[in-house]
């Protein structure tokens, strides 16, 4: 965390509170790492679902462009494969959004809440450590 590093360096009591600083960077770093992991999890799922939508839609467009006669095939009386697949593209869009919203409500939101709590805890611990180092700088060294 370059931002944290610079903050540490500009701190006037750097040498005196070396111990406290290392305590800060470990707890905050751990919280930030976990947060980054949560963000990565969301991007991974979002990317996978986007890819699924691209495959479904461009698959459909590809059939339209390069295999139009296949889409003319009848599934039942009155229903061609093309019309059916067109409707299914819409249904697929619904399903994918439903999957994402369900995952976000059940998994992602609790993870974020946990991270927020962890970060508050880390900040509290940091403040306690900073207070301790201010009170007894000699002992810390």
């Amino acid at each position: 965390m370059t931002g944290d590093d610079r903050e540490n360096q500009t701190a006037a009591t750097r040498a005196a509170s070396a111990h406290a600083a290392s305590a800060r960077s470990t707890s905050t770093d751990a919280a930030l790492r976990r947060m980054r992991a949560v963000a990565r999890t969301r991007w991974r799922l979002a990317g996978a679902l986007t890819a699924a939508m691209i495959v479904v839609y461009f698959g459909f467009l590809g059939l339209v462009a390069w295999a139009p006669q296949r889409l003319a095939t009848r599934v039942t009386e009155g229903l061609s494969l093309g019309v059916l697949l067109g409707a299914l593209v819409i249904v697929a869009a619904w399903l994918l959004t439903w999957v994402y919203v369900r995952w976000a409500n059940l998994v992602y939101d609790p993870m974020v809440a946990e991270q927020r709590a962890a970060l508050v805890n880390a900040n509290n611990a940091e403040q306690t450590a900073a207070l301790a180092s201010e009170r007894k700088p000699g002992e810390q060294r």
Partner: peptide, 24 residues
């Protein structure tokens, strides 16, 4: 006929992308 449905589907599939990539 069918060709018009290409617009129906095309104008919807942007929405999942909005949800996954940019909304939040």
């Amino acid at each position: 006929g069918f060709d018009g449905l290409l617009y129906s589907t095309g104008w919807l599939v942007g929405w999942p992308v909005v949800l996954f990539l940019v909304a939040e």
